[in-house]
Structure formats: C-alpha cells, structure tokens
Nucleic acid binder design. Structure first.
Length: 294
DNA sequence: AAGGGCTTCAACCGCCGCCGC
DNA sequence: AGCGGCGGCGGTTGAAGCCCT
C-alpha cells in the first residue's frame, strides 16, 4: 500500500522531458487561458503537468502562443532584418525577435546558426591556395577566392536550394562573397579626421539591405561592411563585434534610435512584450567618442 | 532502394538577473 | 545582506525529414 502510494508520488514528481503531446498542450493552453502566460511553475506544483515551469514557458513562447508563423520560412525581408539587427545588437535573439512579428528568439537563433554552419562547412570543403599566401603575409583575411563558384550547382550548395529561385533576394545573396572582389577593394574605407563623415564608401557594388542608410556612417553600415573584413571568416557569423576583432574602430552611432529611418519596414512586435519599450534598449550604445579617441 | 550527409527545428541546459523573504 | 525561487536568455543538442549519390 505504502509502496503504491510512493510509486504514484514518484510518478507525479518525476519530471517529464522530450516532445510535447497534444494533451499536454491542451492542459497548458487551458492554464494560460485561465491565468495568463505566467506562474509557469504552478502548473507542475498543482499537478497539472509533469513539466518544469521553464519547459512550459518555452512551449508556450515557441509553439502555442497565438500569431506565430509556424512552418513558414523566413522571407527575404525578414532575413535582411535579422542581418541588420544582428549587426546592431549582436546575438540578442530575443531583442531581434521583437522586430519580427510571429517569430521567436528560437527561430532567429536557429536561422542564424544554420547560415553560420553552412558557410563554415563550405569553407572547410573549399581549400584555397591563396589561403597560404594570406597566412604568409600575416594578414588573416578571409579567403573569398575560396568562394568563387564555377557553377550554379556550387552556388546552390552554399546558398541553399532556393537560391536559384530567389537570387537577388535572400540573405545569402546579400552576403554573397562573389559580389565582393577584395583584391580590388570594392569597399575602401577612407577616413578624413576633418570630415564629419569619417568613412566614405567608395565604389559600392554590394547589394545592401535597403534599410541601410548609406548617407550616414551609422553603426549598422559599418558593422555590415566590416563583417567582410574580419580576421577569421567564421567570425563573420560569430559573436564578437567586427569592430573588436577586425581592428576597425567604428564611430558608435545610435542607429537604433532611428529604427523607422534606417529600417522603415521593420516594426517591433510590441504585442509580444509587456514592457516595451524596454528601458535598457540603448544600454549597448557606448558614449560617442571623438575621432581622436579611435 | 538504401545509406549517408545535411538542414531544420524543438527542446534542454546552464547562467544570470530580479524579486521576495 | 544573503538566500532561494523563478523567469528570461543564449548556446547546444538530438531527432526527424529531406536530398543526393
């Protein structure tokens, strides 16, 4: 008798992991309907589910929340937005996701890491003789020659199967290395300390995301550019800011102060967060430095 | 047809900050 | 002030499905 009771107790207290069942979703939804998306840990303490509060919250946020774009691939515009915002915020997926209605931080994170993996894999499988030259020179520039594609098939391998169909539109096209001829420095950065515009973009031919403002040396512009100049190409999609790893000192411009200007089509999904706008939204912005401090 | 490689996505883990006691 | 619980977040993992050979 005691053993039976004990077993039942253990059964209930045992934490369940793994994929969610429909019945569990129903229980969770009914809890949210009653109490709102909060008190996650009470779901387990009340014996409704054998899931942790964290697990319940995650399930709600990523799958059960209304208006999620489940099963819909990122549009080219969304991809551009992610690039733009990642350049501004770094790997702040939750923050980036607030600009993408119906998308979760997990979605954004998964998207970014899959692109990162894809590029990493391609670089591993396409060794270049020029790498050695670069290495010998002591300059650890990315070997973009390694990404010269001889055939559409190769391009497709790198940039995905839908590249052919959506050429010119997708994220992968925005960062298409063959658009860049680094030997000729399509992008030359010129700095005149007397000029209020410290950087001038010359001979621009890279298809920029439309929301980038080329008239002003904003942070996202510089980040975007400098991401092609990082010492280790894997860091193009890495965490560190390009200004740190590429010795490119960028004038910090609070471009996020003007989201409607730099990203006219990007609107934060304020319905997803309670305390929008977050008061720490400008925390990542360093005080403006004078050119002499660069 | 089958096996291997790759991509996508759901879920977990660990860390951190906040808050109440 | 210190502690513990909780929620939020970013990184990581593993299963499932897809595609190619």
């Amino acid at each position: 008798m005691m053993d039976e009771k004990r077993r039942m107790y253990d059964n209930m207290s045992e934490i369940k992991k793994g994929p969610w069942k429909e019945e569990e979703d129903k229980v969770l939804l009914s809890h949210v309907k009653k109490y709102g998306p909060r008190d996650w840990s009470s779901i387990r303490s009340k014996g409704l589910l054998r899931r942790t509060g964290k697990s319940c919250r995650l399930r709600w946020v990523n799958k059960l929340r209304p208006n999620l774009k489940t099963g819909i691939r990122f549009s080219a515009e969304e991809e551009r937005t992610i690039i733009d915002l990642q350049a501004q915020y770094g790997n702040k997926w939750a923050r980036i996701a607030t600009y993408l209605p119906g998308r979760t931080d997990n979605d954004v994170k998964n998207f970014w890491s899959s692109q990162k993996k894809r590029l990493a894999r391609i670089l591993q499988t396409t060794p270049s003789s020029s790498d050695k030259q670069v290495e010998a020179s002591g300059i650890h520039a990315p070997s973009f020659e390694a990404l010269e594609f001889n055939s559409g098939k190769q391009r497709e391998d790198v940039f995905g199967r839908d590249f052919k169909q959506q050429e010119g539109n997708r994220l992968t096209d925005l960062i298409h290395p063959t658009s860049l001829n680094f030997e000729e420095s399509l992008y030359q950065l010129e700095f005149d300390p007397n000029d209020l515009k410290p950087y001038n973009l010359l001979q621009s031919s890279i298809p920029f995301p439309p929301q980038l403002n080329l008239d002003f040396p904003s942070l996202e512009n510089q980040e975007f550019i400098s991401r092609f100049e990082v010492p280790n190409f894997f860091d193009v999609f890495g965490q560190g800011s390009a200004s740190e790893i590429g010795n490119v000192h960028l004038p910090p411009t609070p471009s996020c102060l003007e989201p409607e200007k730099s990203s006219p089509n990007v609107t934060p999904d304020i319905s997803l967060i309670d305390d929008f706008p977050p008061m720490d939204i400008f925390d990542h912005i360093d005080p403006f430095q004078s050119p002499s401090e660069w």
